[in-house]
Design a protein around this nucleic acid. Structure first.
Lengths: 208, 208, 208, 208
DNA sequence: CATGAATGAGTATTCATTCAT
DNA sequence: CATGAATGAATACTCATTCAT
């Protein structure tokens, strides 16, 4: 290890984002380029200079905004997960029936998958185990806990099957991701009617 | 070809597999080692000498059996896919009801996921897009076609929902994989009763 | 030129030093910061932005005052060498005995090493060969020539040994530097009595 | 930090040196090339591929023999220090007078400086503080302790001055190094008579 | 004048692949 | 056949220097 301590190279996970327009532009361009490439070839299959080139910046510039390739991928992960979560939770119909709540959840996920296909593909179609940091894992855990709570509540009301909530999460989320994967890899057309049909199918899997 | 292909790429497409006992041993050892490591760290995250070391062979030996790292991963993919397919199809109850056929399919996949967890994790928990060759994609396509045919048949008999078969494939396979993922990442316990419960749930999603 | 010279090397040899007060302040701050860091980590081990940060100026500002990192280190070298030389020569007792002259030289060097430890450490405890320019080498040569003249004079008077003056310079300067190094690296205490003792020892090495 | 643990890349400081002739050849060639370049431009001023090129090997080959650039420089340091120490200590005249012992020490160091000028320049003309590891520092400490013991013994017998032994070490070693430096940088001719003269001078500095 | 964001050539190190043994 | 030492292109990351503001 080099004995040279870089006073000007902060080691903390997140650099302070410059707030000028240009700075914000570059930061976003880098995140967008990384998103595209990580979806195409995976994290380990993407070289940092490739990200730089697609973002239209110099290779060194990436390190003004992100401490490392790992910091970049974690930022991307947390950004996308938060965005998905925010969409799902905004004014969630807490007082509605389980059936309606499920429909809302499903439609919001479908809207996200449609409007941000890269974000969704990045989040769900890849295996992040080898580079997620503690913050990212904590975020993931929070989301899971929220989902489990929601299910437990509905089970208490007798609206969905009284089985291990994690099992239901696996079925529902798995089915959703399976549909997206089929559309990406096998040409399944996921228009609104298709999403509606799928929603009705999956509801049958968990209803009482 | 991956964008990070090396300058001195191998010239021959597939090496003839030696047929002596020792040769077959080494070949299997290499495939097994690669399977373990690819599951742990992904394809791009695994170095060829690591595979060699875990297989207990010299690094050069791998190139006697596989033309390149990509050839190795494709062979592994095809081997595992074929093995899964064979398990599912062996004496498949072609004359049984759709309900029974579905149950058989589900139980065989569950048995495979239980008995060959590495093979299943490799096949379904990773994104292979960036390195699968034409043969692998063709095999995948064949399996999908088989599944679709099976579904169309059941739909014709009026046993399962009359919607785009691909959509049903996405739901069923996605749900299955979602369950395995939850067991890997969130500690969901997938014992026989859990698999049976899950099967009943998912059947509800596709039945008429 | 160093074999690792950058592709876009500066075009002008030496920038005209701004003469305003603020300019002079910054110039001094940069030199002081560079001195500290070069002593701590060496020339090649110190990054220009580090110097800027410690000096409290922007990285680009350094290039208003110095054409390049190499120009900066050479300026520092010449500044410190000149300062040491000035201290030694100010009102040097030209008419005194060789014994007294030697004592004066020794005491002045000791005072310098005590009062400007960074300057002394920079000058004598580091190897400058790979980045000193012609001017710096010429200055060094001038100092050596002065020392040799002084010794030749004393030899002519029969006060010190009649051997190659350069050999005596090597012994005296080497011994002095060796003492400082021992104090830096091995904890040798160099208080006034220690310096006096050392002076007596080293005089014995060169006296007739 | 990459999550990828390299099973085949040992992290320990010293790789097992291959014992075949070719392997030993390359290892020596690398050490020799590094020695030359570190003397010329310093550790931080030398790039690993430069070492490789001068050694006539591929850049990657260096990492078969040394875990890192730092491991290489430490190996070099310990090798040269041990070699110097061995030359000094071989059949050292333990029963001789202090005068004779000093002469022996001096002549042996002179022989080393003459026969292995690069090794000596590397050891004594450079500042190693920033990259020496614990082993190297321990070796240095052992040598210093040996020297101090030798001096204390001579002082007890009343043969050399009764002052802080570290001070005498500083003078003697410093004078020696000062002579070598003058020969390198100022053209001082260090033939046998010159070494003999110098030895007599320096003895005067420490004798009672 | 001063800045610091941006750059891209440079750094240490890794790794897919080859080939002499 | 099998090996593993050797390779050099590729990797993640750094830094001297420039220039728009």
């Amino acid at each position: 290890m080099s004995p040279r301590a870089r006073a000007h190279a902060p080691s903390t996970a997140r650099r302070p984002a410059p707030t000028t327009e240009r700075g914000a532009d570059k930061r976003e361009a880098i995140l967008q380029a990384a998103l595209e490439l990580f979806v195409e070839r995976g994290f380990h299959g993407t070289a940092v200079p490739e990200v730089a080139e697609r973002a239209g910046v110099g290779a060194g510039t990436i390190y003004r905004y992100f401490a490392s390739k790992e910091a970049l991928v974690n930022e991307l992960y947390q950004q996308q997960k938060s965005r998905l979560l925010a969409r799902i939770l905004r004014d969630f119909p807490v007082a509605a029936s389980a059936r309606e709540q499920f429909g809302t959840l499903w439609r919001r996920m479908a809207a996200y998958a449609k409007e941000e296909p890269l974000g969704f593909a990045f989040l769900e179609l890849h295996n992040h185990q080898s580079y997620l940091d503690a913050d990212s894992k904590a975020l993931e855990e929070r989301i899971t806990q929220f989902g489990l709570g929601f299910i437990a509540q509905a089970q208490a009301r007798g609206d969905i099957r009284a089985v291990d909530p994690m099992l239901l999460v696996g079925i529902v989320m798995g089915a959703f991701i399976g549909l997206v994967r089929r559309s990406t890899e096998c040409g399944l057309v996921l228009d609104d009617p298709a999403w509606t049909t799928a929603e009705q199918c999956v509801w049958e899997a968990i209803r009482v």
